[in-house]
Design a protein around this nucleic acid. Structure first.
Lengths: 207, 207, 207, 207
DNA sequence: AATGAATGAGGTTTCATTCAT
DNA sequence: GATGAATGAAACCTCATTCAT
């Protein structure tokens, strides 16, 4: 669906999907290792299992690959978030569950998230806007959960900030792994972040 | 001092410093606009106010410019942090002051921090290690303040995490400006983050 | 076969051979006129009849062109030497024939030999070693003929020296043309060298 | 005297000579190691013991350095040849002595000769002509000795060829060292060449 | 007379993209 | 639909040479 943004000369839509999946899979690894700019289209083609000519039957420009990668990552993240988060729940525990499963997701997709994180700026304005929109949607899923789960009413800004904090803390687990993975596993990381979120520095209670 | 890592063919050290400052100033703007990879060395030279030949008298490779930029940013951030943070203070208020001035600093240097944030991965392994080390030092400054300011003893991991959270929240003000600046000024942002940090979600008290 | 030393991104081996022949042909002329260093890759591409991009599909570095040139020359020299020299002949006349045809060969390939002569030192250590090996092989062909043709047994060193003398005298016809071509044609040159070789200075006999 | 061909902005001729000697000494080593083209003017200046600016007070173009080097080598070779060769002697032994001392000279100046050998072609037409002239003069010294030493009258061409052979065999000791130095010392090399020259292949006599 | 900072033309090489087969 | 050879703009970097001090 979102793929409609990247036109292909190939008619067979199923084939287009299949080839693009190959592409994204190959490209993520490469982008992770060397970054978008240092990865050549030939390398992408090779990693995807077809020729450079074929690659260009399914995209127009190199940047399209990056867009496809980002899009696919967001798609997968979003699906998994929707699966594991029920915004209609109203208990504090449901918020905690949501956070925990989001952190777990960020652990599973560390590499992908890292890539996206570092390379979005290489997208065109348009594509960047599209991607930011996706991110806004995800943040507002978190906002929903937060609002529904908290007993006392909070200001909109405060809720936004909490959502953003959680969102970034999830990504942080990936992009600051060099410092965080020394002191934490994903589980202790989640526990400690939740503890801090709930109690701040003034109280010290077990979650 | 740190410049020793990038050799120059020019002997006059004062001149080297001067020229490199010009370079860094010019490069930051360019990197911000188009990213490191899309910025050409000739553009850097021009923005620095000298010829391409002269540029290469002060660096060896394009990557050196990026290193110089990162180094200079860290240097400036560090100096300002050291100026505004007194790790020997033991009151909660001194922690709050530290956070506030760190956030202010991140507001002032938004662009620089954003650049560094997005481009470090383009540095060589060595240079990256050097930069990460700088970051570790800054995080541990925050750890110090936290440890000294809190009445109750916290676990090392917990302190580390709080320090990392604060550190990243500062950067976040820059790299998520597209979402945060709609709801906050740097002051309300600082206030709210501090509020959350202090009280978490369980209590609602005025700072 | 020997081409395996210079990898190409092009898969069609026949095409690789064809294009490299074009390249060598074009490059020899240029190297002869201006030397390897003063010849630009763009000039080589142009003289070869294709674009600079295409040139680099068939080589990795400019030096590869030089190697290909040297290799091709040795190949051709060797083939012609093998065609015209029968190392199993045992008469003095067969030695004389061998020398005469070798000199004729050096006359035909004057330019090529000159180029190789002046530019081998621009090759990498490895490539130089490879080229010297080829030369050793050719010198030992001459050694064979000499040993088989002479009635009396000579010391190994003496045979080696004679072979080297002949070999260098052949090249000398090319690289000292500015002095030799005034007094000799290739035929009188061959005659006189053979005369000297056979009789030295003590006797004066007609060949 | 020959230096007049390379103008200098410096008036003090003694100083010019001194500086140029430094230059030549430094440059020969560099040219030997990396060749003329891969040696930079800065390297030459450094090896000469002065700055790049000073270098250009004593020459106009990089090529001048090469010319100075070649000129100096020829000068030295010529002086030594004139010292050791008396063209008025008429015995065969005096020819043998001349050859032996010329070969010894070529052994002493191997590196210099090799450099000149490989780099003359980088000189301008004019300079090349000048250098070839020097070479002609040296070859004709040999021609003189040969003519005066031989009992029977030889044709001019034959004498020329013998002189050229000897001349090139001397250089060959340097530029084919990779093959000749395995089987010979300079003394056995000289002996064997003289033996061959005298007796050819038909007779086998001790010198 | 000596210095060395500044210059910029020009070299090599890469790589996204096209298009004939 | 797939291939891969061909293209050339454009990038990085070097280095001979100049000239103000």
């Amino acid at each position: 669906m979102s793929d409609r943004q990247v036109p292909s000369t190939i008619k067979d839509e199923a084939l287009v999907s299949k080839r693009r999946n190959q592409m994204v899979k190959g490209a993520v690894t490469l982008f992770m290792e060397k970054g978008f700019h240092k990865t050549t289209t030939r390398e992408i083609a090779k990693a995807s299992g077809f020729s450079i000519g074929t690659l260009y039957e399914y995209i127009r420009k190199k940047e399209d690959v990056l867009f496809l990668v980002c899009d696919s990552i967001y798609q997968r993240v979003k699906v998994r978030m929707e699966d594991s988060i029920d915004p209609n729940q109203t208990s504090i525990d449901s918020l905690i569950d949501a956070i925990r499963s989001y952190f777990q997701l960020m652990d599973d997709m560390q590499n992908e998230v890292l890539v996206m994180y570092q390379e979005v700026k290489s997208l065109s304005r348009d594509a960047q806007e599209y991607v930011l929109q996706k991110e806004r949607e995800m943040v507002s899923m978190l906002e929903q959960v937060i609002m529904n789960s908290l007993p006392e009413k909070r200001s909109e800004a405060e809720v936004k900030l909490i959502a953003n904090n959680i969102f970034v803390q999830g990504q942080m687990w990936g992009f600051r792994r060099w410092i965080l993975h020394r002191s934490f596993t994903i589980d202790t990381y989640a526990d400690t972040q939740i503890l801090l979120l709930m109690n701040g520095l003034n109280n010290k209670t077990q979650v």
